[in-house]
C-alpha cells in the first residue's frame, strides 16, 4: 500500500479576489488553508462539505488544474508543479465533473470515450480495445454509436467516466457527479463508481454533499472553510451530529434518530449509519 495522492500543507487563493476600497487592498481570501491529506491506493474517499467549503478547489489540485500557492501536491512521486509532467498526472488522476452535458466533447459516444486517448496519441488499434473495454466497464457498450443528447443524465455521466477510465488511471476524482441527476441516474453512477473501486482497484475520491453517498465510502473527509475538520471512517465521522449540522451538513436519517433518542437518556450505539444497524439496535430496546 502506498500513497497515490499526498498533499503537503496546501494553501490556495485566487489572485484577483481582493477588493480595492479607498486605495486599501484587503487581504486575499484563502480558499484552502493548509490541507494535509494522504490518499492510499485503492481507497474510496468521500469529501464532504457545503458549497464554498473549498472541496471543489481541493479536487482541482489533484490533477494539476490548479497549483497550490503554498505547499505541494504529489501524485505518486510527481510534484504537480512540474509542468512537463502534467499529462502524466492527468492520465493517472482522471476527473469527472458535475454537469453531464458540459464534459462530452464528441458527437458520438465512442468518439468521446476515445477523446483523451486521441490526445495522448494512442495507436488506433490499441485505442479501439481500450474504448470498448471502458464502455463495457460502465455498461454503455450498446450505446457506443449514440449521440450524447439521446442519453439520460446518468448515462451521460457514465460515458464521461468511461472517457476517463479509457486512460487507465490509478485514481478518479469525481466532483459532485450526481448533483444534477435524478435518483435513478444517481444509483447508476454510484454503482459504477463502487464497481470500479472494487473490481479494478481504482482509487476513488468522490466530492459530494449527499450523506448517503458518503456513508458508502471507506473514509470520509469533511471540509469547512478551507480546512479539514474530520477525517475518519464513516461511522466515526457521522457520530459527530452536532458538528456536521453546524457546518451546514446533514447526517443519515437513522444516525439522527439514534442521536435524538440518546438525548433522552437511551443508551444506543452512536455509530449507526445503515438501516439494518438501526433496525437491530431499535429491536434490542423495543422488543
Amino acid at each position: 500500500m502506498g500513497n497515490i495522492i499526498k498533499t503537503d500543507d496546501i494553501h490556495f487563493y485566487y489572485e484577483n479576489e481582493y477588493s480595492v476600497e479607498e486605495g486599501v487592498e484587503s487581504p486575499v481570501k484563502e480558499i484552502l488553508k493548509g490541507i494535509n491529506l494522504d490518499i492510499n491506493k485503492g481507497e474510496f474517499v468521500a469529501v464532504l462539505g457545503h458549497n464554498g467549503s473549498g472541496k471543489s478547489t481541493f479536487a482541482k489540485h489533484l490533477n494539476a488544474i490548479l497549483l497550490p500557492k503554498k505547499g505541494t501536491v504529489y501524485i505518486g512521486d510527481i510534484d504537480t508543479k512540474l509542468e512537463d509532467r502534467h499529462f502524466d498526472i492527468r492520465q493517472r488522476v482522471g476527473m469527472v465533473f458535475q454537469n453531464p452535458d458540459n464534459q462530452i466533447v464528441a458527437t458520438v459516444v465512442e468518439e468521446d470515450v476515445a477523446f483523451a486517448l486521441e490526445n495522448l496519441g494512442v495507436e488506433p488499434k490499441e485505442m479501439r480495445n481500450r474504448v470498448d473495454d471502458a464502455l463495457k466497464a460502465v455498461d454503455m457498450y450498446e450505446y457506443r454509436e449514440h449521440a450524447p443528447h439521446q442519453l439520460s443524465g446518468g448515462q451521460k455521466q457514465r460515458v464521461a467516466i468511461a472517457g476517463v477510465i479509457a486512460m487507465r488511471p490509478e485514481c478518479i476524482v469525481l466532483d459532485e457527479p450526481t448533483a444534477m441527476l435524478d435518483p435513478k441516474g444517481r444509483q447508476e453512477v454510484l454503482k459504477t463508481i463502487r464497481m470500479l473501486n472494487k473490481n479494478f482497484g481504482i482509487t476513488i475520491v468522490a466530492i459530494t454533499h449527499y450523506m448517503d453517498e458518503a456513508a458508502e465510502a471507506d473514509r470520509v473527509v469533511v471540509m469547512d472553510e478551507g480546512e479539514v475538520i474530520l477525517d475518519d471512517i464513516p461511522k466515526e465521522v457521522f457520530s459527530h451530529v452536532e458538528l456536521l449540522k453546524s457546518v451546514g451538513l446533514d447526517v443519515p436519517q437513522v444516525t439522527e434518530l439514534i442521536y435524538e433518542l440518546n438525548k433522552y437518556g437511551l443508551n444506543i450505539d452512536k455509530q449507526i449509519i445503515t438501516e439494518d444497524e438501526c433496525v437491530e439496535a431499535l429491536m434490542k430496546i423495543l422488543a
Binding site: D212, P252, Q253, V254, E256, L257, E260, L261, E275, C278, V279, L282, M283, L286, A287
Partner: peptide, 28 residues
C-alpha cells in the same frame, strides 16, 4: 425515506407501531 423503511422493517418483526412515520422528529 430511510426512516420509513426502518419503521416498516420493525413492523415486519412484530413491533406494533404506527406505519405512517416519515420524519425523524415524528419517529422520535
Amino acid at each position: 425515506p430511510q426512516i420509513t423503511r426502518v419503521i416498516n422493517e420493525l413492523k415486519n418483526r412484530g413491533i406494533n407501531i404506527e406505519d405512517e412515520i416519515y420524519t425523524v422528529k415524528y419517529a422520535k
